[in-house]
Design a protein around this nucleic acid. Structure first.
Lengths: 133, 133
DNA sequence: CAGTATCCATTTGGATACTG
DNA sequence: CAGTATCCAAATGGATACTG
């Protein structure tokens, strides 16, 4: 009776399909709008705060700070502050963060590659009349 | 390293790091709160609307409908309506949707498996005093 | 059943100003 | 530089009522 539910048994006791499960929150952190991009960027190299802000086109200071703090708390991002003035803070991925980043990057590049087809699909969907052939 | 820019060159002309790129929108669709769970569920089997709503604990009718419409427009989800009364509509993954679903499911199970460690990390982070050793 | 329409509370998120 | 604090606009999202 390890399978009372539908045909997908969670690998552990954690199940994102349960709204009270903390795993759902963590999942939302890594799949969040800016979380995905931050993880992807940090996979390239270490970044300073302002560098990341420029790298991630469109992110506000507030959201970047919030995103990084969340990812740091989850143990995906390492924050290293150098005690100097002006301040210098460097962000990098932890080993766990690297794994997460690889997975999300897979998704990112997959989407980028499929975009031509997806845009074409948008046409088909939005346009009632079929001008094909 | 074969890279001219920041060490990550988009595979195509589409670049999610550009805020105007349509790929960013599609990425947000598949990584959205309910999009991730819908793709994961539909990977198990075909679902009817109400079944999906029960499967995805916490989703509202409105958000589920919206999510499915978006994923359908992107070409990830197939919607089949049977002309009968009461209405019967079945949702399933398209071939493209299956690929996307595999990627997001990878992320989901990864998070579920790492939860114990992540929760422990939360303790460390939130608790200033280090009671270790 | 499978939605849509509407109203409304909450959250998200950005711009700006300010601090160590 | 690396943030934090504040204010406010906009999007998200839920509950309810209604339709084909």
């Amino acid at each position: 009776m390890s399978q009372t539910r539908e045909s997908r048994s969670p690998t552990t006791e954690f199940d994102v399909y349960d709204r009270t499960c903390p795993a759902r929150l963590v999942l939302e952190h890594v799949t969040s709008r800016w979380g995905v991009l931050a993880l992807g960027a940090l996979r390239e190299r270490t970044y300073r705060f302002s560098e990341l802000r420029r790298r991630i086109d469109g992110v506000s200071e507030k959201m970047l700070a919030q995103t990084l703090q969340t990812l740091e708390r989850d143990g995906f991002v390492h924050r290293k502050a150098y005690p100097q003035v002006p301040p210098r803070v460097e962000y990098s991925l932890t080993p766990q963060g690297q794994e997460a980043a690889e997975l999300v990057t897979g998704l990112v590049t997959w989407v980028e590659q499929r975009m031509p087809g997806i845009l074409h699909q948008h046409q088909l969907h939005d346009d009632p009349n079929d001008a094909t052939a």
